[in-house]
Design a binder for these strands. Structure first.
Lengths: 186, 186
DNA sequence: ACTGTAGTACTCCAGATGTAGTGCTGTCAA
DNA sequence: TTGACAGCACTACATCTGGAGTACTACAGT
């Protein structure tokens, strides 16, 4: 077992790409090696088995999906009206869309979670915490809408992002949908 | 190449289950054979290659997801108000949830479509047509809400169903969310 | 010089593919 | 009724691919 953190992170980031590109079944040690451009067998040395790899990937995805400090701070500035919320939601969609492999990898992890109770528990906890954090931030900042608003936004925006990433021509104007969504839900 | 339609359909239905259970990479001729409980090599005889198999599976999923005649007819009866729409949406969620492998298989096909332009075009056409059909039915029947309402319902409900199928404990009360969704969007 | 990591090279193994070949069954005509 | 034929079910096999794991060598930092 090797412990170089830089290399481990690089391997995990490569694993995210592999997961997004080839799906859960495509996530093999060798595929990670190849995509990370490291010698064959390296991933074998860093992760004891596939379960270990998947778990660490899940953590890494969430680490990368967490918005940075400036983004979070921006929520607390400016007027707390529909316009601001609309802008924030557009930014959210664009931010997640800009890291497509993250969203797709998370989707693959969900599907894999169907078969791995351990992974399912981990993802359930993380995602529920994420939703709750969004609700708290939303309410505290005084933006329009209640807890249900946040949950419904979460649902619709997630699928909208999925459409953009997999079948972009189904909804040619996602921005219009985001605007309308906020207008009706908040 | 064999042509027994019953057997072909049985193989496709088995393929849907395999797709939902093991993902796109798990969809092999041998896996389909095993799950359909037919002798090894049968799927090889019915589909020229993987692309052929995937395409036919996509058609079959849509064939099975299409609501039956009584359901469609029900839309045109009863009052055209929020209550009716709410009931219809609950029924929709329950109907799709009752065929989990269909939804999951479609998801896998989407992800596979990222790599296969042919499949992507096929799915884009089918899904866009499906959304448009829903819009038309909705408007014609006089139910509350406009075209955007239908599209936003589609987005949120699809992700809600996904949550129910993969991480059911994230939203313990999906029915409440459906009710609220209709109330705010329509 | 020692320790730990990077990188290499192999052996083993599982599973997938495609096809050739055999036998069964249903159909049609004499 | 029977015999020939066609199409399908099923079996078996030869081959191929690719991943797992590990032992081994090389090298760099202390």
């Amino acid at each position: 077992m090797r412990h170089n953190p830089t290399r481990r992170t690089a391997l995990l980031d490569a694993a995210i790409d592999v997961l997004a590109r080839d799906g859960a079944r495509g996530l093999t040690f060798r595929a990670v090696d190849t995509h990370a451009a490291v010698p064959t067998g390296t991933a074998s040395n860093y992760f004891t088995n596939r379960d270990d790899l998947l778990t660490q990937v899940a953590h890494r995805v969430y680490e990368r999906l967490t918005p940075d400090a400036p983004t979070m701070a921006a929520v607390h500035h400016g007027p707390r009206d529909h316009t601001t919320l609309t802008r924030l939601m557009h930014e959210l969609v664009d931010r997640v869309t800009a890291f497509p492999s993250g969203h797709l990898a998370l989707l693959e992890l969900r599907l894999e979670a169907t078969r791995r109770p351990h992974l399912r528990d981990l993802l359930t906890t993380r995602i529920r915490a994420d939703v709750d954090a969004n609700i708290t931030t939303h309410i505290d900042s005084g933006l329009p809408g209640d807890a249900t608003t946040v949950e419904l936004l979460y649902l619709a925006l997630n699928w909208l992002i999925l459409e953009r990433l997999t079948l972009p021509d189904v909804f040619p104007d996602p921005h219009h949908l985001v605007t309308e969504l906020v207008r009706r839900l908040a």
